[in-house]
């Protein structure tokens, strides 16, 4: 554990909590892509199956359980409890495509051809692109509530901080997992436009509206 990873994890945790608070307080999931949330739930489910087989630390186990539980809670809020507020007609990204491509890539490019390893690899590839339905939805509506943009900023920063963590681990521990690193770079790259808008608009107290 190093400082970059710790802040990264805290940023990830903050993102999830911000999203839950937004939905719970406003009793509404408007502006949130249910498809991205479904993908994140699939990501956590496939990746954290090792909860049953591989103990790392109390911290690791606790975080995994929290991420799993919170993602299922989010899905429940969007598709059941507050489903009347879900903007289904704006959430039109073909997310099946992301799943198919991630499955194929995971079968072709992995560290080891075993069930758990392929599921882990699939979760890494899918996580890299899971935000696309959400970004697509914002592009379509042309705006996002500020709390939604705080959520996205925390979620995007998390993988960016992981990149610093991987650089650190490479030099200090000789640890390099290029599947995670390359996917993490893609994942962070997808947020670039958003980061720019967030810093130039939201941080100055304006709303996140896309230039026409």
């Amino acid at each position: 554990m190093n400082v970059f990873r710790l802040i990264g994890d805290m940023s990830h945790l903050a993102a999830i909590i911000i999203l839950l608070i937004k939905i719970w307080r406003s009793r509404s999931c408007s502006g949130i892509s249910g498809k991205s949330q479904l993908l994140f739930t699939a990501v956590f489910t496939c990746r954290y199956l090792d909860l049953f087989t591989n103990f790392v630390s109390i911290y690791n186990t606790t975080m995994k359980i929290f991420f799993l539980a919170s993602s299922y809670a989010t899905i429940y809020l969007i598709f059941m409890k507050f489903k009347a507020t879900y903007n289904r007609n704006h959430d039109t990204f073909r997310f099946e495509l992301l799943i198919v491509v991630s499955v194929i890539l995971a079968l072709l490019i992995n560290h080891e051809f075993s069930a758990t390893e392929i599921l882990w690899t699939f979760s890494i590839y899918l996580e890299a692109v899971a935000i696309l339905p959400q970004l697509f939805m914002i592009t379509k509506t042309g705006e996002a509530e500020s709390i939604t943009s705080h959520y996205l900023f925390a979620l995007g920063s998390y993988r960016g901080l992981y990149i610093l963590n991987w650089i650190y681990r490479y030099y200090v521990e000789g640890h390099l997992d290029w599947i995670a690193v390359l996917s993490g770079i893609v994942q962070t790259g997808l947020y670039c436009d958003f980061f720019y808008l967030y810093i130039t608009r939201v941080m100055k107290g304006k709303n996140l509206t896309l230039p026409a």
């Binding site: 990873r5 690791n60 997992d177």
Partner: peptide, 10 residues
């Protein structure tokens, strides 16, 4: 050097 003994990250 490549190392992938276990996935200890989240």
């Amino acid at each position: 050097k490549y190392c992938n003994k276990k996935h200890d990250e989240l």
